[in-house]
């Protein structure tokens, strides 16, 4: 489903003329199969988020190729990227990233609005999904009126609402206590099993990594399959 080949990226820091190049990704290759949960573990600062950002099209890689279902996304411009994200990806972030001015229901509804779907259809879809993730009770709450676990459920619902084939998650349980983490992991697993959604989960949490079918380890910008103990 996702194939990444020879991905390199480095950040420039410092003033113009005297800038330093800091390599963050070095010849990264990996693939994700349909219906898999793949997790990427690694130390802080090893380049996990950077990889995910490039995958999502938030920024362009220095070199390398990304193909999603045979479509080369690494050559997309900003507009194409946005369109592609809307139709193919759902996102789950560590700090939820909900719209503070919208309540739980409206936050979940937002991607459908972006897709230009009629109100009646939107409401029906959101209602069904809210029931599925157990948020119906709190759907009128604004993000600051929700617990962390509830917020993450809202953000998962928002990621799911457009029925994307792939969900990209960056430390989805990073801000949650272990009990809530368990709930979220169960939800992810059931979504994977019942709906066949592919997950790419970045984490430095063992327990999260264990829910995955396959694990990659990032170490200083190099990605290897399997758990490399000293790298975590």
């Amino acid at each position: 489903m996702i194939t990444v080949k020879g991905l390199n990226h480095s950040f420039k820091i410092g003033k113009k003329g005297k800038e330093k190049h800091i390599p963050v990704l070095r010849d990264v290759n990996f693939d994700v199969n349909d219906g898999e949960i793949v997790s990427i573990v690694g130390k802080s600062g090893s380049g996990k988020s950077t990889l995910l950002h490039i995958l999502a099209g938030f920024m362009a890689p220095e070199s390398g190729e990304i193909k999603v279902n045979g479509i080369e996304t690494s050559i997309f411009n900003e507009t194409d990227n946005a369109e592609f994200r809307l139709n193919n990806y759902g996102f789950i972030f560590q700090n939820f990233q909900l719209m503070p001015g919208l309540n739980a229901f409206e936050n979940v509804e937002l991607p459908l609005k972006l897709k230009g779907i009629e109100k009646a259809e939107r409401q029906e879809k959101v209602n069904t999904l809210m029931k599925y993730v157990g948020l119906t009770e709190v759907q009128d709450h604004y993000p600051n009126e929700l617990s962390g676990g509830q917020q993450q459920r809202v953000s998962i619902a928002r990621a799911l609402i457009t029925d994307p084939p792939i969900i990209l998650a960056d430390e989805p349980t990073g801000s949650l206590d272990s009990e809530t983490e368990q709930e979220i992991l169960l939800l992810i697993q059931s979504l994977n099993k019942n709906r066949g959604i592919t997950f790419v989960i970045i984490t430095h949490d063992d327990e999260v990594a264990q829910t995955a079918n396959r694990v990659y380890t990032m170490h200083d910008g190099e990605l290897k399959e399997g758990v490399v103990q000293h790298a975590i």
């Binding site: 999502a56 938030f58 900003e78 507009t79 946005a82 369109e83 592609f84 994200r85 809307l86 139709n87 990806y89 996102f91 990233q97 909900l98 719209m99 503070p100 001015g101 937002l110 991607p111 972006l114 928002r158």
Partner: peptide
Amino acid sequence: TREIGVMKAIGAKPQL
């Protein structure tokens, strides 16, 4: 800024 970032992340085009 953050809201705009979220909008873009979930697929809002710059034109929108």
